[in-house]
Design a protein around this nucleic acid. Structure first.
Length: 276
DNA sequence: CGCCAGGGTCTCG
DNA sequence: CGAGACCATGGC
């Protein structure tokens, strides 16, 4: 724990790890964050807006935290509009993580109609019940799809998944059966990739956009959940629209880094509208 | 108790 | 194509 490595920045670790992208990190009283990157234990902290590595694989961690994302260039593309500028002022330093693909896909399949706290609880339960222990961490690794494919639906429901258990199970079996490869499809253009992801049980347009944004570096992908839906409605001065119309509006109005803008809007709204 | 949560899917008009 | 019903679970 004496060897510290400055990985770079700027980054706001609290905003990044508490914004509903990942759900298994723990913030210690001393400000250190402990979590997992795949099946490797990681401990990081923040000092003068720089990411400090205390434990874990430096190169992978820097890549995961997307320290190469050009934040200043991204901020310059934020729309000149009250809500987006307010979210930028409040969340400056938050980065869109590069997540392991299966882990991200599975987690967001369980996310439908669930609050962030519930998603975290389900993730931890699944890890505890099906994942393998990791040296140096009290959190288990997220189970591979081969493992979940052999689980029973009732045992998944025991993790609090409800009706989402069937979707996660069927999706895990599709990968176990080799019907789809999350790595092989990474080179597809965004529309085709979104369409492919939506063939997975429990993955519609919103979850597909989450996977595109958080696991495939498609920084223009905009997940529209209930929060963003309300925000877009406000930006349109109350003018409602079909999901397709709202998606087109978001793509046009939020710019080339629309996914980034969306994440700032989402987190800021959640933090200001209610506690947690 | 009623309502809502980072929705998806199926049915019906 | 677009609106509605239904799907489990937990917190307020």
């Amino acid at each position: 724990m004496s060897d510290q490595v400055v990985l770079g920045g700027p980054i706001d670790l609290d905003q990044t790890l508490y914004s509903g992208q990942v759900f298994h990190w723990n913030r210690c009283p001393d400000g250190f964050w402990s979590g997992l990157l795949g099946n490797e234990a990681v401990v990081v902290s923040e000092k003068k807006q720089n990411l400090i590595l205390h434990h874990g694989p430096a190169k992978k961690v820097a890549h995961h935290f997307a320290l190469d994302h050009p934040l200043q260039e991204i901020y310059a593309e934020f729309p000149d509009e009250a809500l987006s500028l307010a979210s930028l002022a409040a969340c400056r330093g938050m980065r869109i993580l590069r997540q392991p693909r299966w882990e991200c896909t599975a987690t967001f399949i369980t996310s439908s109609m669930k609050q962030v706290g519930h998603i975290r609880a389900m993730s931890l339960a699944i890890r505890e019940r099906f994942g393998t222990a990791v040296v140096g961490s009290d959190i288990h690794a997220y189970p591979a799809f081969e493992v979940l494919a052999k689980a029973s639906e009732s045992s998944l429901r025991g993790c609090g998944l409800g009706y989402r258990a069937g979707n996660l199970l069927k999706t895990a079996r599709m990968f176990a059966d080799g019907k789809l490869d999350l790595e092989a499809i990474a080179k597809l253009p965004t529309p085709k990739l979104r369409q492919t992801l939506q063939t997975l049980p429990g993955v519609g347009v919103k979850v597909a956009n989450c996977i595109l944004l958080f696991a495939y570096e498609r920084l223009d992908a905009v997940p529209i959940d209930t929060w963003i839906d309300r925000i877009l409605l406000a930006m349109r001065k109350g003018r409602k629209g079909t999901p397709a119309q709202l998606a087109a509006y978001a793509r046009r109005r939020l710019g080339p880094y629309a996914g980034y803008v969306q994440q700032y809007l989402f987190h800021h709204a959640r933090m200001t509208k209610k506690g947690r």
